[in-house]
Amino acid sequence: MQYKLVINGKTLKGETTTKAVDAETAEKAFKQYANDNGVDGVWTYDDATKTFTVTE
């Protein structure tokens, strides 16, 4: 399945996608991506759209 990440950071904004077997695996990949880019915020997930959002 394909999952999307929407980033609403202080210095980084945008979107990225990943393919993963489940939401938990996608979340780990997205959190690593956010961490690598210095984004630390509040996470939400919408199962209907398979979209994670992180807001600083």
Rank of each mutant, 00 (worst) to 15 (best):
M1R: 10
M1D: 15
Q2R: 11
Y3V: 01
K4G: 04
K4D: 03
L5K: 00
L5G: 01
V6W: 05
V6G: 02
V6L: 08
V6P: 00
I7E: 01
N8P: 03
N8H: 11
N8K: 11
N8I: 15
N8D: 10
G9A: 10
G9Q: 05
G9V: 14
G9K: 05
G9D: 03
G9E: 03
K10T: 12
K10Q: 12
K10M: 12
K10E: 08
T11C: 14
T11M: 11
L12S: 08
L12H: 11
L12D: 05
L12F: 14
K13W: 09
K13G: 06
K13Y: 11
K13L: 08
G14A: 14
G14F: 14
G14V: 14
G14R: 12
G14I: 15
E15F: 12
E15Y: 12
E15S: 13
E15N: 07
E15D: 05
E15K: 07
T16F: 15
T16V: 15
T16G: 05
T17K: 06
T17N: 08
T17R: 06
T18R: 07
T18E: 05
T18A: 08
T18I: 15
T18N: 05
K19S: 13
A20M: 04
A20G: 04
D22Q: 04
D22I: 03
D22S: 10
A23R: 14
E24F: 11
E24N: 10
T25P: 03
T25G: 09
T25H: 11
A26G: 02
A26I: 02
A26N: 00
A26M: 01
E27A: 12
E27G: 10
K28T: 08
K28A: 11
K28F: 09
K28E: 07
A29N: 10
A29I: 15
F30G: 00
K31S: 04
K31E: 03
Q32M: 09
Q32T: 09
Y33F: 12
A34R: 01
A34H: 02
N35I: 15
N35K: 15
N35A: 15
N35D: 11
N35W: 14
D36A: 13
D36C: 09
N37V: 13
N37F: 13
N37P: 01
N37Y: 13
G38N: 10
G38Y: 06
V39E: 02
V39T: 03
D40Y: 14
D40G: 09
G41T: 02
V42S: 09
W43E: 00
W43V: 02
W43C: 02
W43Q: 01
W43L: 03
W43G: 00
T44E: 10
T44G: 05
T44C: 07
T44Q: 09
Y45W: 04
Y45H: 02
Y45Q: 01
D46W: 03
D46L: 04
D46K: 03
A48E: 13
A48M: 12
A48P: 06
T49S: 12
T49L: 08
T49M: 06
K50I: 03
K50L: 11
K50A: 07
T51K: 03
F52Q: 00
F52N: 00
F52C: 01
F52P: 00
F52H: 02
F52T: 00
T53C: 05
V54T: 02
V54G: 00
V54S: 01
E56G: 05
E56T: 07
E56M: 07
E56D: 08
E56L: 09
